[in-house]
Computed example of a mutant assay.
Amino acid sequence: MKKIASPAALSGRAERIAQRDRSDAWKKPPRRIEKSECITCDTCLRSCPAEFGAIFDRGLDVVIIPELCSGCPACVLECPVDCIYVDEDWTPTDDAMWNHIELTAKGA
């Protein structure tokens, strides 16, 4: 069952969305989903803690936004096909995805 984040934690997420940047306090690298192994079951999306909300379903694939991912193992522990890996060499999220995230966040 997904925990509900505190208002302060959610405001931290909103700030990361506005800044489009990872928290400097996070020491672990973000995670990534290997598209060729993913079955798009959305289990990872449902298991990602609300204060991070780093996983999005884009229709044909599920993606982890590295700037929102703290590197915690919550999604990894729930993935039925083990397709989530540490992403040491992550690249910044593109503007089109950020625009989608901002629209989604405003509806929440």
Rank of each mutant, 00 (worst) to 15 (best):
K28T: 04
G53M: 01
T43I: 06
C38R: 01
F56D: 00
D94A: 04
A108N: 11
M97D: 01
D61E: 15
K3E: 08
I17L: 07
G107M: 13
L68H: 05
V63G: 01
D95T: 14
P7K: 12
G53A: 06
A14V: 06
V86P: 07
V62C: 09
R58H: 06
A74W: 11
E78C: 11
D82F: 15
R58C: 03
P29H: 07
A8K: 15
R20G: 08
C41D: 05
A25T: 13
D21Q: 14
P92F: 15
D82A: 13
R31M: 12
G71L: 11
P73K: 12
K35L: 10
A54P: 00
A9S: 14
C75E: 01
A9L: 04
I33G: 01
I33V: 14
W26Q: 00
G107I: 14
R16C: 02
C48P: 10
C83P: 00
I55E: 03
K28F: 08
L45T: 10
R13I: 06
V63L: 06
L45D: 02
I33N: 07
A8V: 00
P66I: 07
H100V: 10
L68N: 00
M1S: 14
K3G: 09
W26I: 02
S23W: 03
T93G: 03
M97T: 04
P49N: 09
A9G: 15
S36T: 09
W90C: 07
I84H: 02
D57M: 09
A8I: 12
I33S: 00
F52L: 08
G53D: 02
D95W: 12
C79K: 02
K3A: 15
S23Y: 01
E15Y: 12
I101F: 10
K106E: 11
W26Y: 01
K27I: 03
L103V: 08
D89L: 11
T43F: 14
F52H: 09
L77F: 15
A108H: 14
F56T: 01
G107E: 06
R46E: 04
S36G: 03
I4K: 14
P92H: 06
I4C: 12
E88L: 14
I55P: 02
K27F: 02
E67A: 09
P7M: 12
I17H: 02
S70C: 07
C69E: 06
S36Q: 09
V86W: 11
P49I: 02
R13L: 11
K3V: 07
P66F: 12
D21Y: 09
P7Y: 12
C48N: 13
V76C: 06
G12S: 08
I33L: 03
G59H: 14
M1T: 05
L68G: 10
F56G: 03
P66E: 00
W26C: 01
C79A: 11
N99F: 15
T40Q: 08
A25K: 10
W26D: 00
